[in-house]
Amino acid sequence: MSRDVKKRLRRTMLFLNAQRPSLMKDAYVYAPDSVIFDLEDAVAENQKDAARFSLYNNLRSIDYGEVERIVRVNGLDTPHWVEDIRASVAGGADGIRIPKCERARDVRRIEEAIESAERAFSRKPGSTLIMAAIESPRGVLNALEICESSERLFGVALSGGDFRAAMQTKYYPSGVEMAAARGNVLIAARASGVQCFDTVFTNIDDIEGFKSEVIMNREMGFDGKSVVNPRQIAIVHEIFTPGEREIREAERVVTALSENANDGVGVFLVDGKMVDIAFLAGARRTLALARAGGVYKGDL
């Protein structure tokens, strides 16, 4: 699989109930970077079969354009997950989201089922990506082995609902109850070179609270956020899109690094700040985000 696909822009991942056609039919118009068709918690136990039929047919017939299509399958402790994967792979899903992932072998079990489905349905081997949702204290503690478990794994997502319950706490606007988990999972993701996504914000009407959390996510270094309502998409994209000042600063860093490298200089000043090669990746990422957000047309 290509590195570009694994590293594609994923600022927003919009959850949609796979059993509800009204949600699935035009999700692409809201322009999230990814959609996550949910076969798990959003679907009642006696509708799991119907959701799979709906998912498969809609995956095959609706053109989502550039929007990535991920499927959240049911957990490994249910009788549903293998058939969920078969329907998803046969339908042409871009990836599978593993719920309640706690260890590397959870990822490997999912990967084996994907490999089998790719063979059965003549999909290109390795074309179906994986992301893992970390929802428990054990999952947080095992984040590094999860992040390093598979070549297919493009990222991990922290899931707050179950995690807060397991930690015997609840949502607080400060985010203090999630601070350790956010830090641990993010560090594991960065150490292994995969992406990291923050949990959903479920109070749809609390726009200011949502903005504060997204700003914190960006400042911490997350790649994006799971969202539950289309109204949240534009807010995340705006906050994750660099401003004019950041863009110009990044341009100057990239240009200065290139020029100074040619002159054999490793450390120098840009706008009064000391800069060296360690700043290059961040500056390039800023420009890539700005380009993706449509606010940068340059060629650096």
Binding site: P21, K25, D49, A50, F53, S54, Y56, N57, N58, R60, S61, I62
Partner: peptide, 16 residues
């Protein structure tokens, strides 16, 4: 419903 949804519902009803 879209055609794909109608198809999915018919297939599911027949399966059930």
């Amino acid at each position: 419903a879209l055609d794909s949804t109608i198809k999915a519902r018919v297939e599911c009803a027949v399966f059930r």
